[in-house]
Write a protein that binds this DNA or RNA. Sequence first.
RNA 1: GGCGCGUUGGUGUAACUGGUUAACACGCCGCCCUCUCAAGGCGGAGAGCACGGGUUCGAGUCCCGUACGCGCUACCA
Length: 495
Amino acid sequence: MSDIRVRFAPSPTGYLHVGGARTALFNWLFARKVGGTFILRIEDTDTERSSEAMVRGILEGMEWLGLHYDEGPFFQSNYADKHRAAAYQLLETGWAYRDFTPKQERDDTNIKDQIAKERVVNPFRDLPKIESDARAETGEPFVIRFKVPAEGKTQFDDIVFGLQQRDYSDIEDLVLLRSDGHPLYNLSVVVDDIEMRITHVVRGQDHINNTHKQVLLYQALGKPVPKFAHLPLILAPDKSKLSKRKHGEIVSVTTYRDAGFIPDAFVNFLALVGWAPEEGLAAKDQEIFSREELIRIFSLEGIHKSNAVFNFTEGDERNWTDQKALWMNFEYIKTWPLENLLPLIQPELQKAGLWRDEYFGERKAWYEHTITLLRERARTLLDFAKHGRPYFVAGLDFEFEDAAVKKNLQKDPALKTLLPVLAERFAAMADFTHDAVEAALRAVAEENGVKAGLLINATRTALTGQSVGPSLFELVPAIGKQRAAERLRHAAGLV
RNA sequence: GGCGCGUUGGUGUAACUGGUUAACACGCCGCCCUCUCAAGGCGGAGAGCACGGGUUCGAGUCCCGUACGCGCUACCA
């Protein structure tokens, strides 16, 4: 195992955002690739916005994606003492100062804007230490601010964005400790990353500005600066930042779990937004990658700089999320090894009350064959219970779609007599196979002077209640002789 | 406003250190197959690489400017 250590550090917002999921994924891939350590740390220093329930959403998302962490979850709030100590250390070493400006004054946005615009130097910045200590002694409230040097600039070489520089004059004296003694984000992050010996910080591009501040903190604390890789953002179709408030459930990965996505498919999709394998590492134009392949070919250098758009149509039920993600899921359902797929389908059938343990035993062959039939047309895992219901229930415990009944059963009154005829023919068959069923059905059609198609489509609806589905002669044997005959007789009543 | 970053078809991406008619996938359209719907096969439309200048024999690839977009600009994270 190498000594490379990375972390994913979400704030507990109650759900794992797709952008966050990709950040987690890239950290995970990188760690696995180099044999490093992947750490999960919950940034809950803002106690007002944190709760256990909020954390659970994150954990659930990680779990579903299969992004297992080697250490954690750590909770940043547990280390507040260390963060505070660091703030006081910086105060002692002269890298920070007490700011006694009353809070009300600071909360006034007009005053704040003015200070920012005119680059007003904080009056407490150079308050003599003795005086500062004395005022603190009397109980006068203060915040601890970092003292950004007057001249010079920060710089770091971002793995994705290249050399980044910032004049000190463009960085404000950030608050390290609130007046209630609460440590703030930039300080906490740096102290924790030092403590956890993080070597590579891989996070969203929206943190680039913070990074300059953090570099300063590392230096003031006399610690080595880790390497940084900032990721481009994932935007909504209107190019605005993807947010739950604005875009709803589509941003939460649990939505994809609940919508019947295969986690590997979603991971595969996510990996390809903002990143592509470097030439030669993967087959040209390859897009389907297993986790193992992704780990093998992943590199931070392959991440690109421009933001990506997550393409979906609001209000469109079929294209409720990115079409390529949808396609990817379908592709996995269709082509994944059956033994991978089966464990994901079982819970879906159980939820719908369709599961029978004999699918593991004497009905195994039938079950697996039926699943291979259904997977051809399933777009999500949910479809196995939805479209598959007629295959798994006894009798007539499934829905007849109105449109299907109208289109295929009520199309020709002759079906009223033909369906029972077909039922009897089926019931009398010894060999209920694809070819035998086809021969029987075509014979009935010919004897009665109707087109086979009429009977075929009517039979499909009779047996499944649906107008679409697998090839009929595959379908009928899967339903079986008994149920097929029974459903055909029943359907005659619907004509 | 300030600071930073970005810009290849509708979307995601490709195009070795500048070198043939800018490639692939999703989506879209059409044809074939066909018992339905998909899938699959074949074909097509769709960007001349944000725009304007340069450098060069030659630029999507280098330089400058403009526009647009995005991020950050808290005693939030």
